[in-house]
Each structure stands twice: as structure tokens, then as C-alpha cells.
Design a binder for these strands. Structure first.
Lengths: 240, 240
DNA sequence: AATCTTAGTGTATTTTTTACACTTAGTTCG
DNA sequence: CGAACTAAGTGTAAAAAATACACTAAGATT
């Protein structure tokens, strides 16, 4: 089947993973993007962090490795949400291979498995590395045109993130280990774009029974420190 | 990076799609499986219908094409739900290549994009074709050991199907065009494994406002014919 | 005309969700 | 060291949603 173009090329597609990392501070929901290293004067294209899957890693390992390599972020729970595989989603784009360390087969299409995540921005300080010249936190409502079909991937990730917060009523493994109820509430407000009542929110969370109170309080704040919580680890095997 | 094994093999993975087609009659929820053509006497292995993605089709096209080729089912809405890519999920298995028309690179791993669907069994009559020797509707609570990691894929599909019915309260594009409220209720009961109250069910559906009553009634029944409905087509572009 | 089968409908009770305001613990500043 | 500041933490009443429950209606079959 199909002996196309160059000699040693197989028809097998390249497979990559892309990460849509959402970050929140006390104001806005943002998304982590990377920027090309040496832009020759012209406006640099932004993209989601992503790269090809290696031969001996599973998809989740690939996503975490690549995120670490490009942005130095580690210890983040990533959730697979969709695989994008239009035949021309990457192949057509000529001069944007800076986003991939190495196209195994430059003739072949690229199918990408997309993951998303959510982090508190102040707990993580991404640093550009490898092929990324720069990393930026971009407001989700001000995302410019991205490389490839990354706008589509981003949009679907945002949609899924919001669904996750509406149906299940908490963002499960998507948060740092320890957090306060106010942080959690703020998060819901930012993501869903609504204001919530403090007492009702706490009632609901309590009843849903997904949090465990820790023997520990917030520190380093100039007011009454809040109780810290963590999620009950249902610990879904996230290794595929 | 990795110049492994045989000469013309690239490290690019094979990519396939697998379909978990759920069927319901008035009793049970079933899943469509295929069986090897010429089993040499020994017990034949069952598997989900699936095969490699071709060079110039997108993933959704691939899934529908393969489903048609193997089981002759057509016009079914398929929903992508997860991609499975453990490095050894298929490579290790020796004698089961009957499930793939042609392994582009027999050395390389196989990453599979999984879809699920739901059909009313009487509206569709699957027929084995191509490499499938036989197709069977298997009760979801009596699924035997399947090829590869297909049990895992099946289990996750079932989980997702049930979630879909709990959170959104209807199975959107997953059903045939026209149906009665009793059919829809029966479906919910079968999928969720519970009994529902007729009046309350109708109240809820009515309020959720996802159905449109048609100018048409059921025919061919020996009792009062029921009103037919269809879904409001939000018509999500399902082409990727 | 009588019988059979599933369609189709309303109300009272319980549970869940919402709206709403004050006290408490710790920090900072004078 | 006390006063003032800041966010944490808590309960109750009203509204809305979910549940439990049983009969009449329409068409087909005898």
C-alpha cells in the first residue's frame, strides 16, 4: 500500500503528544505556550508544547517527558482528552519543524495525542528549554493564532476542562496536592466564569466527599490560616 | 534515535482504530465482536473490529471504513474516547495478526485510537466480511478474554458510555433518528442498570429540551402507537 | 362489543439547591 | 500590647428539583 515519495519512508505516521497546560492565578485562566528560539526578525509563532513519541515510552510518559523538556514543568497530572489526525494537519506546514526535535519521517503526516492539565501558576515556574525559546502564560481569552491546528486543540481542551468541572464537581487530579477550600472555590469561579456562594460551595464539596482534610494549615499569609485539603486518591492508573 | 531490528523499518508506530459498538435490544446491552476466520480447531479468539489507519484518511473516516469492511455496518455515529499506546500493547502478541489487514511495519508497536457507538440492534444487521470470519453480539456482562488489550478498551468504553448517560442525560447522536419515549427510557434502564419511573423520566426529558416531537407516530404495533421524537441536532462536527 | 397492550398524564412528599450575615483566628501596625 | 485588618469558617429559611405513586386513552385483536 502506498510506496510514496522518498525511498526509506514508510507510510506509518509520526505520532506526537501535545500538552495544553492551563494555569490560574487569582484573576485569570491562562494557557502555557512556547515560542520559537531564533525568530529572524519576523513575528514568532506560538504553539502548544509537544513533540514526537519515542519508541519505548507510553503516551502518558511521552507527554510528561516532553513537557519537562520544553518547559521544565514536572509533577503535573495530565489528562488525555483527544487524538487529532487529519491527514494534513501538520504535513502541509513547511517551516515550522522547529516544534519537533526530529521528524522521523518528514514525508509522513503527524497524528497527535492531546493532553490537558491545570496548575496553580505560582507553584510552577516554567522555563524555556530545548527547542523552546520562550514560554508564556497567555490569557485563554486572548490566544492568538497558533502553529498547526493548535487553536483547535486548545479550544477543545478548554471545553473539556469546563465540562469536567461541571459534571464531576471537582477537578480531581488536576490540582496541586494541598489546597484550601477558598483556592478551590476561586478556581471553580475562574474556570466556569461565575461567582459562587462560599457556604453553599463548601456544603456541596463536603457532601461530594472527594476531599480529605489534612493535619496542616496554610502558612505565610497575613490573616487567619485556612485548613488544607487534598483529594481522595482514587488513583486511576494514568499510565496509558 | 533507535535504529532497531530490521532494515527498512522506521521507528514510526503503526496506528489503528478500534470500534466498540454497543447494541441494545429490549433486554440486554451487547457489544459487537469479531472472530477469526479459519480457526484450526482451537478456540477462536474474539476481538474488537479494528485495523490500521490509511495514509489519506482522517481518524473518524478510518473508524467508519473499518467498521464497514469488517462488519458491514454503516451510517453509525462513532465517538472517539481514548487512544491506547503502551509500547507493548500489540507488538508482543505473536499469532494474532489476522486482525490487521497488513502490518505496515511488523516490528513497530501499534497505537490505537478507540471509538464507541450505540445502536438499536434490530436496525442493523452486521455481517462478517474481510478478515472477520464471524461477528457476534456479546452480552456486556459476559465478555470473554479478547485479543490484545481489547478487554481494557472495552471496559473503558462501557464506563464512558455510562458517564455519557448520567451527566448529559441523553445519548445524543448515539441513537437512530426516530424513537419513542418508551424506547429511550428502556435504553436508559438497560445502560444504567436501573428501573425508572415513566412519568418522572418524561418530565426530565421534557425539561432538558433536547428532543423534538415529530409529526409521526409509531406504526406496526398492536397497541396505541406512540409519538416519535428525534434529537435536536446540535450537529457537532464529528469529522476528526 | 369486549379485551388486550402500551401510551400518556398530575399531585403530594422529600431532597437538594439557593440566598443570605455574623463570629473567629491570626497578622500587622501604631 | 491593643486596635484594626483580612480572610476563614459556620446555619437557617425559602425555592426548586427529584421522587413516589395509579388511573384513563388509543388503537389492535378476538
Amino acid at each position: 500500500m502506498a510506496d510514496s515519495a522518498n525511498m526509506h519512508s514508510s507510510p506509518n505516521p509520526n505520532v506526537s503528544t501535545d500538552c495544553v497546560v492551563f494555569g490560574f492565578d487569582d484573576e485569570k485562566l491562562k494557557v502555557l505556550l512556547i515560542e520559537q528560539k531564533n525568530t529572524g526578525g519576523i513575528s514568532p509563532q506560538l504553539a502548544l508544547p509537544g513533540d514526537l513519541v519515542l519508541e519505548n515510552e507510553n503516551l502518558y510518559q511521552s507527554a510528561t517527558r516532553i513537557l519537562k523538556e520544553l518547559t521544565n514543568l514536572e509533577g503535573i497530572y495530565l489528562k488525555q482528552f483527544k487524538t487529532f489526525g487529519n491527514p494534513n494537519r501538520v504535513r502541509d506546514v513547511k517551516d515550522q519543524d522547529w516544534l519537533r526535535t526530529f521528524r522521523e519521517d518528514p514525508q509522513a503526516r503527524v497524528i497527535t495525542v492531546a493532553y490537558y492539565s491545570l496548575v496553580k501558576m505560582e507553584d510552577f515556574a516554567p522555563q524555556a528549554a530545548s527547542l523552546a525559546g520562550k514560554v508564556v502564560w497567555q490569557n485563554v481569552d486572548e490566544v492568538p493564532q497558533l502553529a498547526f491546528d493548535h487553536n483547535q486543540i486548545f479550544n477543545e481542551a478548554l471545553e473539556r476542562l469546563r465540562e469536567e468541572f461541571e459534571y464531576k464537581n471537582v477537578g480531581y487530579e488536576l490540582l496541586p496536592k494541598k489546597f484550601t477550600l477558598s483556592m478551590l472555590q476561586k478556581l471553580h469561579e475562574i474556570i466556569l466564569g461565575v461567582e459562587l456562594d462560599k457556604r453553599n460551595f463548601r456544603k456541596k464539596i463536603k457532601k461530594s466527599d472527594v476531599l480529605i482534610p489534612l493535619d496542616e494549615k496554610q502558612s505565610g499569609v497575613d490573616h487567619k490560616p485556612a485548613q488544607l485539603f487534598r483529594y481522595k486518591t482514587a488513583s486511576k492508573s494514568s499510565s496509558i
